[in-house]
Computed example of a mutant assay.
Amino acid sequence: MKFAHWLVLGCVCLLPLSASAQWQWIDKSGKKVFSDQAPPPDIPEKNILRRAGSPPPARTGFSSAPADGAASDEAGAPKAREAAAAPKPPAVDKELEEKTKKAQAEEKAKQAAEAEKNAKIKAENCERARQGKATFDSGIRVAKVNAKGEREIMDDTARAAEQKRLQSIIQSDCK
């Protein structure tokens, strides 16, 4: 019985050593990738951070053809070789994934705040344009201050132009 306990304890202690047979590299988008498969051939050597404990397999991705020129009679053999050589999808670093999600959420919140701010500005512009249009539609005299700081009463053409401008603001901002 004591021997069985020691055997189980030994197996438990040796279990983490199997995790050392991992590959670690940085992919094209800058993410750390952990896998039990070798990285794809397009990953440069400088981006490989850790190799598996055993010597790395050939990085060609495909097995070489027979030297005597005898091709396989099976039609599916090349496809089977390609499928076997294709790398499995790598596991992505969890921390990096969480940071990316957090950054995306912050960006969405920033965009929502900006959209809310723009909607508030449009609503204020709409209200001002409606008040101005009501003033011009009432028919009372309206004075404007010129570049010299003098008050000038608007004539009918200036009133019509201002009414047209206010109407375009109402059409664009009051939706």
Rank of each mutant, 00 (worst) to 15 (best):
M1V: 12
K2Q: 11
K2H: 12
A4D: 10
H5A: 11
G10D: 00
G10K: 01
C11Y: 08
V12M: 12
V12P: 00
P16M: 03
L17I: 09
S18A: 12
A19T: 06
Q22H: 08
Q24W: 02
D27T: 02
D27A: 04
K28N: 08
K28T: 07
K28D: 12
K28W: 07
G30R: 01
K31W: 13
K31M: 09
K31H: 10
K32W: 05
V33H: 03
V33E: 06
S35F: 01
S35M: 02
Q37G: 07
A38L: 06
A38C: 04
P41D: 05
D42S: 11
K46I: 07
K46W: 12
N47I: 01
I48P: 01
I48T: 03
A52H: 11
A52R: 07
S54R: 14
P56D: 08
P57Y: 06
A58L: 10
T60G: 15
G61Q: 05
F62K: 14
F62L: 15
F62Q: 14
A65C: 05
A65R: 10
D68A: 08
G69P: 06
G69I: 07
A71R: 13
S72R: 11
S72T: 09
A75S: 09
A75R: 14
G76K: 11
G76M: 12
P78G: 02
K79A: 08
A83G: 01
A83M: 08
A84W: 10
A84C: 01
P87E: 11
P87D: 09
P87G: 08
K88V: 07
V92A: 08
D93L: 03
D93P: 01
E95D: 13
K99Q: 15
K102G: 00
K102Q: 13
K102F: 02
A103M: 13
A103C: 03
A105C: 02
E106H: 10
E106K: 15
E106P: 00
E107D: 11
K110L: 09
Q111S: 04
Q111A: 15
A112W: 04
A112S: 09
A113P: 01
A113S: 09
A115F: 06
A119E: 07
K120E: 10
I121Q: 06
K122L: 02
E124F: 01
E127V: 05
Q131N: 11
T135S: 06
T135H: 06
S138T: 00
I140H: 06
I140K: 14
R141E: 12
K144L: 06
V145R: 13
A147H: 10
K148F: 06
K148P: 00
G149V: 05
G149P: 03
G149D: 04
G149F: 08
E150R: 09
E150T: 03
E152D: 09
A160N: 04
E162A: 13
Q163S: 14
Q163C: 03
L166K: 04
L166T: 01
S168V: 09
S168W: 03
I169G: 01
Q171G: 05
C174E: 01
K175Q: 13
K175R: 09
